[in-house]
Each structure stands twice: as C-alpha cells, then as structure tokens.
Design a protein around this nucleic acid. Structure first.
Lengths: 239, 239
DNA sequence: TCAAAAGTGTTCGATATACACCCATGC
DNA sequence: GCATGGGTGTATATCGAACACTTTTGA
C-alpha cells in the first residue's frame, strides 16, 4: 500500500455574508461553548459524511445554522495546505470535537449570502453565533482568516457574473439608498447617486412598490423589490 | 468514532488546454497502457501525497506530464459526488492503479494552458498522451466529461479576469490573426477584424516585432509578442 | 494575373461619468 | 425653520459595433 498518499477527512467551511450599518458582516460561531474567550470564534463548518457531496454538506451546515433551506451558496476554493490544521490548539479542538484522531484536514470553502435581519433558527452544534463586520474579524483558528480574505475577493466576482445575487443581502423591501450603499461597500468606492438612480431604473427587474418609509425625519424613501421572474426572463432573452 | 464521516483519498485532475487548427484541444492520457482501446482515455491526475498541498499536486502532475515547471494553472472546483467513482470499471482501475482499496474519491480540478506546439517531455506514469479537440472528446471515465464541460465555462471567466493568460495558448511570436482566431474560439463568436486590430493596438503590452512571416503565398503578417512586464506595470498603475 | 490572407478609418449608438439643486418630513 | 436624507436632468466622453476596399506575396 502506498502509504504516502493522503487518506483524510474532508470538511466544508462557510463564509456567510450579511449587510448592516454599511458594512459587510460575517457570521461566526463559538468554537467551544465551554470557553468564554470572546475570540474563540471560527467559521461554521463540518466534516462531510461518507455519502454526501460537498455541496450538500455546505447546505446542511447552512441549514443547521440558520434554519433556511436552500440558501444561495457558491463553492469557491479547496484549502489543503498540509499545515493548515497543525497548530496544537487546533489539533486539540479537532480531536475533541470529532473523536477520530485527525492529522490533517482538507476543507472546501463556500460563500453564502444572508439577509442579516432574518431571524435564524440555529439547530446546529454551535450554540452561539455572532455577526462581525469584516473589519473586526479577530484572529481565527486554522486558515479561516485566509479563507475570509479570499471570500471577500470572490464575492465581487460572483456579483459581476450574476448581478441578481446581491439582493440576497437586502431585505425583501429595500430603498435605493440601501442598494446604493451596498454597492459602494462591495466595490469599495463612491458611486454617484444620480447615476445610480438611472442604473436602478434601467434594471427592469427592480420594481418600485407603492410604499414608502414611515416615521423618518426626512423625506420618506420609496421601497423597491427584486423580481426574480422578470430577471430570469430578461437574462434568457439575451442572445 | 463517528464512522459516517468520510475518510478518503483526494486527487487532482488537470484540464490542459492547447490551441491549434482554430480549436481548443485538451491533453488526455491513456489510462491503461495494456488496453489498446482508443477510447481508454482520461484526464491526467494523481492522488495527492500526505505532505502535499493540492496546488503542488497539480503542479507535479503537470510537470511529470509536460516537463514544464510552474505552468499557469488555476483551481476551479472540487468534485465530490459520492457516485463519481463508483462504476465497476472505474473502481477496478483505481484499485489496480493504486493498491489501497478506494471506495470513493474526491477530486480537485485544475485548468491549465499550454502552447500546443511545445515539445513535452513526459516522465509520468502515462506513457501515451493525446491532444484532442474539445468537439471530439469521447466518453471518459469518472466524471471527467463533466469536469471538461465546467472547465470550458471557467476558461472564459479566467480570461475575463486576467486577459494576459490567453497568451499562454499562443507561441511566443504570434500574428494578430492567430490571436483573433483564438478569441473567436474561446468566446465562440465572430469578432470584426478591423475592430480587433484597434483593440490589439490599444493593448500596449502586445508589442510588434520587426519580423514577418516568410514563404507564405499572401501578404506576410507581422509578428507580435506579449510583454509581461509592460502588462504588470499597466495593471498596477490602475487605481 | 489570380488566389489568399493582411491590413486599414469612419460613423453611429449606447453606455458611463461628471456635476448641483429642490423636496419631504419630523423635530 | 432647520436638519436630514430623498430624489431629479443634462452635457460630455468613452467604448463597442457596423461596415468594404487596398496591399502584399507566391504560385
């Protein structure tokens, strides 16, 4: 037997983005309920089962964490640095969380998007979860900081390829201002608001509702919604 | 021990593109030297070693196959369908090629680009290799046909993100006509030749050489080369 | 002189950018 | 009435698309 071929467990890790306070936020979980160390956070993830595809494993992690079935998600990279799980703390945690002795761990990373105000019904092993702005992510175990760094690059590419997925980050009803700030945040640049209004008007699948903000101490903004059917129709009629 | 977590080998598979006769070609290998069945082809790949990152494993496969160190490559997806290696023929071959009994196999797929006329010095276990046009790929083992299908989508995205990598598919000296045909092939559409000349002229990193074709029975085309340093300089000066 | 591919400019429409003021609301 | 954010139009520059003829070379 060629003992030098890797024989290993495989996990998935999910970088779940939410948008709030003009910041992208990431949903992290407490790695160990016992430890009250505030920095004891990690990306949600799981080893995959022996009859499970990685995409399904990611969906399972997301479902157990949020209670949402079929979240929008995207695999973006396999992380397999032989040293990625070799710190003493990480090895100790792995062997405590999963009984088998794990020498090395390969993970497949996923991006997902979530309406941050949505109530999450966590049924996972992680009892505590926390949204943290991307600018305030503490040092995390394994290579989770690197995974997040890559995810931040990947999210733009994803939106470039499929502009509709940005609406996953907004409430069902949203204002142009919210969408504007989200674009500015994702692309990290100022976008002229008048040109932006024109751009939104050109998106026929962003439809205005007969509803406005109430109880705001300024002119009330109109609400809009994203119409997925109109979007699909438009996409398919392009040659 | 939670026996239902996957514990498995992991492989890499490489989709190597070359450009010739106005077609994208893929470099396939004979899976089994014994069998003379012409269709006994597969993507080049390997199980990964226990101290090896997946990127390094892909570089190793490419090096052993082509003799080229540090080929341009890009990881594009992990394929982990539990059934992907479960046909009888595939299981039999796996267990013959690699002594350990392999029940399931997860693979990480890579894209790579190669100047098709470059002489390859194959030192891999595969004694026979073959360039095949993408339109003539026969049924392949495992999910290799699906991997190739995804690779064909991914190659465009890659070129969109990093226009320079398209030159990996051309000889060091090339004509505008060759570049034109390559673009038409990759994007599968006609591109107006006059507009294309303008576009090339705007690429300051494509520099014309004082050299022309010889012994062609028509007006001799000028040769150009891709200047990587100029390209990088241009990229970094963009805000 | 013919066949075959190389090379060359202009016009038009669409899209992106720059830019400043009035409007509605709650306090 | 004032502070706060919402909402609007025009002019210019840039980019991409359409379109046809002359040049060079070997046979």
């Amino acid at each position: 037997m060629a003992t030098n071929f890797i024989h290993t467990y495989v996990s998935v890790d999910c970088v779940i983005f939410g948008f709030e306070h003009n910041m992208l936020n990431i949903l992290l979980v407490k790695r160990d309920a016992d430890m009250e160390d505030a920095k004891n956070l990690k990306l949600p993830g799981s080893l995959i089962y022996d009859n499970e595809d990685v995409d399904d494993a990611a969906q399972r992690v997301l479902y157990e964490l949020t209670g949402i079935k079929r979240m929008t998600l995207r695999q973006f990279r396999c992380f397999a640095d032989p040293e990625r799980a070799s710190s003493e703390v990480d090895k100790k945690w792995l062997n405590k969380a999963y009984q088998p002795n794990i020498e090395r761990l390969i993970t497949v990373a996923y991006l997902s998007l979530c309406k941050i105000n949505r109530k999450l019904t966590n049924v996972s092993k992680y009892k505590q979860t926390q949204w943290l702005p991307v600018t305030e992510i503490p040092p995390l175990p394994f290579d989770h900081n690197k995974i997040i760094k890559d995810a931040l690059i990947e999210i733009r590419t994803w939106i470039d390829r499929d502009p509709a997925i940005i609406f996953e980050l907004l409430p069902v009803k949203f204002t142009v201002s919210q969408l504007h700030k989200l674009y500015e945040t994702v692309y990290n640049k100022k976008i002229d608001i008048r040109n932006f209004h024109k751009k939104v008007a050109a998106m026929t699948y962003v439809v205005s509702l007969d509803e406005r903000q109430t109880n705001v101490s300024h002119r009330a903004a109109r609400f809009y919604k994203f119409d997925r059917k109109l979007y699909r129709k438009q996409q398919t009629t392009m040659s």
